[in-house]
């Protein structure tokens, strides 16, 4: 019992995820900066590693302004719910071993549900702000969901078909036991999942809901102080979630040589997620932002047919 609680709190629980989230934010910022011939964060901590933590603490200490016109319960609830849901979703990702902290048959479906919930919360956050920029940002977030949700789910189905299970842990277990990573059978699915997750994370080229030059900060415009700190923290957790999901579903999760020995699995997981984060930040530096109509129609025109082709291909191969 005590061990379970310790696991929940420290590793692979909340403390570990918190550190990982802040570290990946730093990695993302630093890597993008180097691609753009800049330096990125560099003063707080060694090479700026503590900068995300400093930002987090600073935002917590800042004045929390709540405009009069906002719908208070929803406005207050969104940041809390967003970070809780992100943490909850992360417990379904196998980090320590091939089994996640929480797992049951069908948790992949639950995971897609949680990810949709995140987008709906973004919409609610924008709507409850009643600010024009927030409202448009929220609407765009909802609109974007229509675009990426279907290809994302279809891409997730691929590994599930391969492993003949709808549980993330089972899929990882199958990859660990057979030694075949799902990416080998799902190269298209991997690409589609990466693109769709970029949209889920609201990063360039799909940062429409918070397009800085168009909508100030989009649906987050009115959030400040503690709420903004929580929101930003939730985004960092989402980044871990996205990288973790890709790792588990396509790259075999903690599987790798000697993964059964304690700590080795975590190290494999860490290496793989780092690579995924680097791919994501590389893509961030590569494109201009799409327009919302281009984004949605592009998703339906290219991503959905490709995802279907991927599934047909799998059916043919596995027969």
């Amino acid at each position: 019992m005590i061990i379970e609680i310790l696991k929940l709190l420290i590793i692979p629980g909340i403390f570990f995820l918190f550190t990982l989230a802040l570290f990946y934010q730093w990695l993302d910022r630093r890597f993008l900066a180097r691609l753009q011939n800049r330096r990125g964060p560099m003063h707080t901590g060694s090479h700026g590693t503590l900068q995300p933590l400093a930002d987090f603490i600073k935002l917590l200490a800042k004045e929390d302004i709540e405009p009069e016109a906002v719908d208070k319960p929803v406005f207050r609830g969104v940041p809390i719910l967003l970070s809780t849901i992100s943490i909850t979703a992360l417990f379904f990702i196998p980090i320590w071993g091939v089994k996640a902290f929480v797992h049951f048959e069908g948790d992949l479906i639950f995971m897609t549900f949680l990810m949709t919930l995140i987008a709906i919360l973004a919409f609610l956050g924008g709507w409850s702000s009643t600010n024009r920029f927030s409202t448009i940002g929220g609407l765009r977030a909802a609109m974007q969901t229509l675009g990426y949700e279907v290809p994302l789910s279809l891409a997730f189905i691929g590994p599930a078909i391969v492993a003949k299970s709808l549980s993330i842990s089972k899929i990882v277990e199958w990859q660990a036991s057979t030694g075949i990573w799902a990416i080998i059978l799902n190269p298209l699915g991997f690409g589609i999942a990466i693109i769709a997750l970029l949209a889920e994370l609201e990063k360039v080229p799909f940062d429409l809901p918070e397009a800085e030059t168009e909508l100030v900060a989009g649906w987050q415009t009115e959030f400040s102080g503690r709420k903004l700190a929580l929101l930003r923290f939730a985004f960092d957790l989402e980044l871990v979630l996205a990288a973790g999901l890709i790792t588990s579903l396509f790259l075999g999760g903690p599987a790798g040589p000697f993964y059964n020995i304690p700590w080795v699995g975590v190290i494999w997981f860490f290496i793989k997620t780092t690579i995924v984060v680097l791919i994501l930040s590389n893509l961030r530096g590569l494109f201009a932002r799409f327009r919302i109509d281009q984004m949605v129609s592009g998703c339906w025109k290219y991503l959905v047919p490709l995802a279907i082709i991927q599934i047909i291909f799998l059916q043919l191969v596995l027969g």
Binding site: L35, Q36, N37, V204, P205, E212, T213, F287, A288, R289
Partner: peptide, 16 residues
């Protein structure tokens, strides 16, 4: 212009 369409990398290079 690059920054306005969200292409920050080009923005950084141009200004450099």
């Amino acid at each position: 212009a690059a920054h306005e369409i969200g292409f920050d990398t080009l923005f950084m290079y141009c200004w450099r």
